[in-house]
Amino acid sequence: MTNSPLAAGRGPYDLQGAIDLHVHTAPCLFARLGDDIETARLCAGAGLRAIAIKSHHESTVSRARLSSQAVPGIDVVGGITLNWTVGGVNPYAVEAALLTGGRIVWGPSGHAAYHGEIMGGLGSWGRPGMAMPGSPDAGVQVTDETGQLTSAARNVLDLIGDHDAVFATSHLGPHEILAVLAYAKPRGIKVLVNHVFYLPRVDEEFLGKVVAAGGLIEIVSGVMLVPKLQKDLDYTYSRLVATIQRFGAESFILASDGGSVDLALWPYEQLRMFARLLLNAGLKEPELDLTLRTNPARLIGLPV
């Protein structure tokens, strides 16, 4: 027997209509629990309405389209991540991804300059089996030495706006994120700030700046499954609930950042756990519905 999507306090949380905009699948440079189609099938079976597949090394637009055709009942979204493996902040690669149906452009991840600062090296996550190929001399950035957006970054954001797509900040640094938001807000370009408190390492005051600049904020379940990160970042359910309620659920999206073999749980399992424990920690049912269904649907252009 399943519960209402808003039912609390009894049984597993019902994910019907939920959307996960941060899922990792094989083929990948790192070990993943399943490939695109297997992951889509399991998420569809759990009731998810849509998922977005992120790759650190290539566009997932074609992979997402084929997965949507192979798995009825779920919208699989693709995009491109601006690491050196696609040329960094490369407007040509971005335009091709958007013209073929991409809906999300992620900033650089393992090759981001900020990632290198936090993780102690470009292309490395400090965990066995997680290292990107190549030894780049410099990290990818969207700002120049003056702190202004580069012309390539402005071109990428303009393309995203033209296609009503989304720019997700991935592993950009705080100053880069604020520069992106300052450019995006007057132009109506949608921006999602990924896995806050992890990358970028920021406090709640920074989130206030994101909200004021019109950005949406992503909170991911994957950080909860790494005990050292959870402890070091004070990434507790009570803190996350307080943060969401301080700035308003209309400014947040929940996602899994799931698919890693190390984290063991499938993305939909992570999301189900995350939703239930956030409710237990005091998140209200309508707030959860906004962060898990309504906000992500609006972001990628699905009917609400």
Rank of each mutant, 00 (worst) to 15 (best):
M1R: 12
N3L: 15
G11P: 08
A18P: 04
T25G: 10
A26W: 10
C28M: 04
L29Y: 11
D36E: 15
I37L: 04
E38Y: 05
E38D: 15
C43E: 12
A52D: 06
A52L: 11
H56Y: 08
H57G: 05
E58G: 01
S62V: 13
S68M: 03
S68G: 14
P72Q: 05
P72M: 03
V76L: 03
V89I: 15
N90D: 02
P91R: 00
A93Q: 04
A97P: 08
L98H: 05
T100E: 15
I104Q: 01
V105R: 01
W106H: 12
G107W: 06
P108Y: 11
S109M: 07
H111T: 08
A113P: 07
A113K: 02
S124W: 12
P128L: 09
G129P: 12
G129R: 02
M130A: 15
P133C: 05
P133H: 03
P136S: 08
G139E: 09
V140Q: 13
V140S: 01
V142C: 08
D144E: 07
Q148Y: 07
L149P: 13
S151Y: 06
S151M: 10
R154D: 12
N155T: 14
D158V: 06
V166D: 10
S170K: 00
P174M: 07
Y183I: 08
A184S: 15
K185Q: 15
K190W: 05
N194P: 02
F206T: 07
K209M: 13
V210R: 00
V210D: 05
A212F: 09
G215I: 13
I217K: 04
I219M: 15
V220A: 14
S221P: 00
G222L: 07
V223W: 05
M224K: 12
L225Y: 14
K231P: 00
T236K: 06
Y237R: 02
T243E: 04
E250H: 09
E250N: 07
S260D: 10
L263M: 09
L263D: 11
L265G: 03
L265P: 01
Q270T: 07
R272G: 14
A281N: 08
E285H: 10
E287K: 01
D289C: 13
L292P: 10
L292G: 11
R293S: 05
